[in-house]
Write a protein that binds this DNA or RNA. Structure first.
Lengths: 341, 341
DNA sequence: CTGAAAGCGCTTACAG
DNA sequence: CTGAAAGCGCTTACAG
C-alpha cells in the first residue's frame, strides 16, 4: 500500500514523462509551444500523478499570482455583497482568484491588510472609496501594483475609481424630496469620518437644500453605524426633537429600514406622517414596508467593471481609467408629500 | 531622485544590518532567539527599508501559508454572510487570512476551487455541507490538509463538521405548525440535489408529518433557487392547487420572504389566511411583514467555531472534533393557527 | 547566539 | 521544439 505520498512536483512529472521540467512547465503554461506528441506524454503523466502545480513556487518564479485582493469595510452587510460577488465572478472568468478581508471601517486595519495582501503577492487591489492617508497612497505607489477604488467615483483621485457620484446622486434624491414640499428635513448618515461615500451623501443633501433656500447648516444630522438598530435609534432621537422633520433621508437602505421600524413602533405612518428614503437599493429596500424610495446603485455592474479595470491594468500595464456609473432614483412608497404642505 | 525601486528583500535587510539572512529571518519569526542588540539593528533596517516579507517565498520555504480557504455556494445572499464574516474575524485574530470563492451551487465548480485553493497553499479549507462525490473526499484525504464542513452537523461525515442539525431543527418547527392545527402543509425548498441542508430540512418536515399521522409522501413540494422571486413563484403555484395549503414551510428566510410578498399580491393575509415560516433567522426575517417565524441558526457562533476548529487542526495536527450547535424556534408573526381548525 | 548553505518547486532567458 | 541551469526570496537544520 503506497503510504500518503507528498504531492507530485514538476520534477516527478518530468521524470515520468521523460522530458525536462521546462517542457512540462511549457505544456502547462504555453501548450502551443510544445509539439503534440510531447504534450500528450506530459499531460498523461500529469493526470497519472494527479499533479497540481505548487502555487507559491509559481508565484515566486513568475512574479505573478493571479490573485486580486479586495478590502471592504464589512461582509456582514448587504451593501457590499452583491458588488463583491460580481467582482469575484468576473475575476474567476479571467482566471483570477479573490482574496478578501474586511477592515471593519478602521483605517489602520485597512492599512495592515493592504500590506498583507500585497505581501501575499496580490497582482492588484480593490479598495473602497478614497479616504485614506497620503502615506498609504505613497506606499501603494511604491508597490507599483494596480489599485482601484470602488463605490465612489472621483476624477482626481490618486488611484482610478470605478463607482458613482455619491454627492449628485443624493442631491438628486433630495431635490425630489424638496419638490414634494418638505422643508423640515433631517438626515441619518453613516459615520462620515474616513468614509467619503457617507460624507458626499451629506454634502449632496446640503447642496439641494441650499439650492432651494433652505438652511443647510441647520440640518439635523445623526451619524451612526450602518445597522438597522442604529437607524431606529437615530430616527427616534430625530423625531423627538421639538421641531419634527417631515422627511428623514438616510445614508443607506439599512439605516432607512431601521427608521421604518422605529416609525412603526412610534405609531407613525410612512409616508403620511413622515417620509423616509434610503440609498443603495439593496434587496431590503423592496421588502421593507412601505417599500423604500431610494437611490439605485448598479452594484453588479460596478463589481464587474472594477474587476475588468484591474485585470486590464495588470495585463496591459496601463494606469487605468476611472468609470462613473449612473445611478437613478427608485421611487417606491416611503416618500410622499409633506404633510404640512 | 531614487527611481521606483523593487521591494526590499531579506538580503537587503541583512546587508544593511550587517548580519546574515538567517538572523533577519529569526528576528522576524522567533525574535526571542536573537540577542537584543542584534535584533534592534535588524529591526531598524527593516523599518528603514520598509521591508515586507515576500509571502510566496515564505510559504514555499516554510510550507505554511497562514491562509485558509472558504468555498461557499454564494456570497450574494445573507445566508452565508454573517457566518463568513465571523469566520474571517476569528481567522484574522489568529493571524490567518481567508481566501474565498463561491461555487454557485455547482459541484464541479466546488471541486475546481478545492484544487485551486489547495494549490495556492491554503493550510485548511472550509466547505459547506456534506454532499459531494467520494472522489472529492479521497482527493482531500490525500492532500492531508484540515478540512471542515459547516452549516450541517453530521456525526459520521468523512470530514469533521461544525454546524447544526438541519433535520431535527426543521422537524421541531414543523411540530409547532402541526400543533397549531395545520394539516394541509406545503413546502418550498431549495434545490436538494447536492445540498444536504435542503434535503435534511425536507426530511425533518416529513418526520414531523409522519409522527402525527399525516401523509408525508403527499407533501406538496417545490424545489427552487434561493431567491425571493423564486419563493414568490413557488408560493403562487402552491396556492393555486385545488387543495390549498394552510401553512407553507420554506427552506429558508429568503424563500419565505418571497412567499410573503406573493401572499400580499394575492390578497392573502398572513397568518390569518395562510401561515408561512422561514429558516435561518437572517435580518430579513425581522424586517418582513409580518415578521417571520423561523428557525434561528447561530451563524456567528458557527463561523467562529469553524475557524477555531480549523486552526486547532492545523496547529496541533489533530483530526478535529465536530460540533453540533443548538438552534431554536423564533416565534414571530407569520405562523398562526390553521384557519380551518 | 549567529552564519554558510541547501532546499522549497516553479519559470524563463539562453542555447542548440 | 526542447533542455540545462540560474534564479525567485525565503526558512531551517547543521555547525560553530
Amino acid at each position: 500500500m503506497p503510504r500518503p505520498k507528498a504531492a507530485a512536483t514538476l520534477d516527478d512529472v518530468a521524470r515520468k514523462a521523460g522530458v525536462s521540467t521546462a517542457t512540462v512547465s511549457r505544456c502547462l503554461n504555453a501548450p502551443e509551444r510544445v509539439v503534440k506528441a510531447t504534450r500528450e506524454k506530459v499531460m498523461s503523466a500529469v493526470r497519472d500523478l494527479d499533479y497540481t502545480p505548487n502555487f507559491a513556487a509559481r508565484v515566486m518564479a513568475a512574479k505573478r499570482s493571479f490573485t486580486i485582493g479586495a478590502i471592504i469595510p464589512t461582509m456582514d452587510n448587504a451593501i457590499f455583497a452583491r458588488g463583491l460577488q460580481a467582482f469575484q465572478e468576473e475575476l474567476h472568468a479571467h482566471g483570477y482568484t479573490m482574496l478578501v478581508s474586511s477592515s471593519a471601517y478602521r483605517p489602520e486595519a485597512e492599512e495592515e491588510q493592504i500590506r498583507t495582501l500585497l505581501a501575499r503577492g496580490a497582482d492588484g487591489l480593490l479598495l473602497i472609496g478614497h479616504d485614506r492617508e497620503t502615506a498609504v497612497y505613497d506606499y501603494l505607489e511604491r508597490q507599483m501594483k494596480p489599485v482601484v477604488a470602488a463605490w465612489s467615483y472621483r476624477a482626481d483621485g490618486r488611484i482610478p475609481s470605478v463607482g458613482f457620484d455619491n454627492r449628485t446622486s443624493m442631491r438628486a434624491l433630495a431635490e425630489e424630496v424638496i419638490k414634494l414640499g418638505h422643508r423640515n428635513i433631517a438626515m441619518i448618515s453613516g459615520i462620515s469620518q474616513g468614509n467619503d461615500r457617507a460624507r458626499l451623501r451629506i454634502d449632496g443633501l446640503r447642496d439641494a437644500m441650499r439650492a432651494h433656500g433652505l438652511d443647510a447648516d441647520a440640518l439635523p444630522l445623526i451619524e451612526t453605524r450602518y445597522e438597522i438598530e442604529s437607524g431606529s435609534e437615530a430616527f427616534s432621537e430625530l423625531m423627538s426633537a421639538p421641531q419634527r422633520p417631515s422627511a428623514v433621508l438616510c445614508g443607506n437602505d439599512v439605516l432607512a429600514v431601521g427608521a421604518l421600524l422605529a416609525a412603526r413602533r412610534m405609531g407613525l405612518r410612512v409616508p403620511q406622517d413622515v417620509s423616509v428614503t434610503g440609498f443603495d437599493d439593496i434587496e431590503l429596500a423592496q421588502i421593507a414596508q412601505p417599500a423604500l424610495t431610494t437611490v439605485h446603485v448598479p452594484h453588479r455592474e460596478m463589481g464587474r467593471r472594477a474587476a475588468l479595470a484591474l485585470i486590464e491594468m495588470i495585463e496591459s500595464e496601463g494606469k487605468g481609467t476611472s468609470v462613473n456609473l449612473p445611478t437613478f432614483i427608485e421611487m417606491r412608497d416611503s416618500l410622499g408629500p409633506s404633510p404640512s404642505r
